[in-house]
């Protein structure tokens, strides 16, 4: 990491975070969604200078660091109490979404196999990260990666707006709303943002559910590598993939959750850590907003967008119905 190269963009993120928090207090609007809105307006109305790009591109690191810190707020007792049911739901919805996108892409809309696989991974696991990870396993072309990434980003932008509205209209509890967002939205950043915009409880459940989904990435990459190697022309599958693709910030989150649940940290220390991750999230979401670029979203093809929309409607409706029945 070159500090001097990153500094201008990091300063821009800090200024954006301070501005988002100040505006949130004066306007009475949620600071996380405001941070995304600020980044979005900056990139689409003014544009981001090249010298700010390297620093702003670190926003994923601050999001992951914030998720690690969030482990301090988690009660392992509560997680163990209802975690089994949520885990079954995560695996069920992930598999349903993946198979739905594959079926629609191949059999209904006639998309190329690899394109369908990239969309399926992005919709079912963890957005653009999954698209890029699976692209290596299936030897996808650069334009297919860009196309699939643009489709995922389009639905990230849509769900950031739609999910909070639906959550308010249906008056969902924090646990139900958070788990619903975590199990059915695409990328980690938007899931954390809409979760904490609803309530702290929703934010924690949204993040935990999403981390469980993210942890499945190794399995999905391995499955795709095996399938395409068998069909000819894919990367070489290896059990090591399971570890190579496992997101390490999930381990940091779990370690801190164990430490905190053991009572090692005082309530003042936990409060400080909670304040720290809140700052990291605001910082990260200013950067996330700069990635929602209208010009890129307009490049999304209608067919991939329809395929992903149909799969999202199915997984979203099924998971919400299951959550309302279970909790």
């Amino acid at each position: 990491m070159n500090g001097r190269r990153l500094l201008p963009g990091l300063l821009a993120l800090c200024l954006g975070a301070i501005l988002a928090r100040a505006l949130a207090v004066s306007l009475g609007f949620n600071r996380l969604l405001l941070a995304i809105a600020l980044g979005f307006v900056a990139t689409n109305a003014v544009g981001i200078p090249d010298r700010l790009e390297p620093g702003i591109a670190t926003h994923g690191l601050w999001l992951a660091g914030g998720i690690v810190l969030m482990g301090a707020s988690i009660s392992l007792g509560t997680v163990l109490e209802v975690g089994g049911l949520v885990l079954v739901l995560v695996v069920g919805v992930t598999a349903t979404t993946l198979l739905a996108v594959e079926f629609l892409a191949r059999n209904v809309f006639g998309l190329a196999d690899r394109m369908g696989s990239l969309l399926a991974a992005g919709a079912s696991i963890c957005g653009v990260s999954a698209v890029v990870a699976v692209a290596g396993a299936v030897s996808a072309r650069e334009e297919q990666i860009a196309y699939a990434a643009a489709t995922v980003l389009l639905f990230d932008a849509i769900t950031i707006v739609v999910y909070p509205i639906v959550g308010d209209l249906l008056d969902l509890s924090g646990m139900v709303f958070g788990t619903w967002a975590g199990v059915s939205m695409f990328s980690t950043g938007p899931v954390v943002a809409v979760g904490f915009a609803h309530s702290d409880v929703a934010g924690q459940w949204a993040t935990m559910t999403k981390l469980a989904r993210n942890a499945l990435i190794g399995v999905v990459v391995l499955a795709y590598a095996s399938y395409y190697a068998h069909a000819g022309g894919g990367g070489r599958p290896s059990v090591r993939t399971l570890w190579n693709e496992f997101p390490t910030f999930v381990l940091g989150f779990l370690a801190l959750a164990v430490v905190s649940s053991a009572g090692v940290l005082s309530s003042a220390q936990v409060t400080s850590i909670e304040n720290a991750y809140d700052w990291l999230f605001v910082l990260a979401f200013v950067g996330l907003g700069t990635e929602i670029r209208l010009a890129d979203l307009r490049a999304t093809g209608p067919m991939p967008a329809v395929v992903v929309l149909l799969a999202l409607l199915v997984s979203s409706a099924l998971s919400l119905a299951a959550l309302l029945v279970l909790f």
């Binding site: 591109a57 670190t58 926003h59 994923g60 690191l61 999001l63 992951a64 653009v128 990260s129 698209v131 890029v132 990870a133 650069e142 334009e143 990666i145 860009a146 990434a149 643009a150 980003l153 980690t188 997101p247 910030f249 990635e291 670029r293 890129d296 490049a299």
Partner: peptide
């Protein structure tokens, strides 16, 4: 370009 943004985000996480 979107592909660069996608790779950046992947790099971030």
């Amino acid at each position: 370009p979107t592909a660069v943004a996608a790779t950046d985000r992947r790099r971030g996480l």
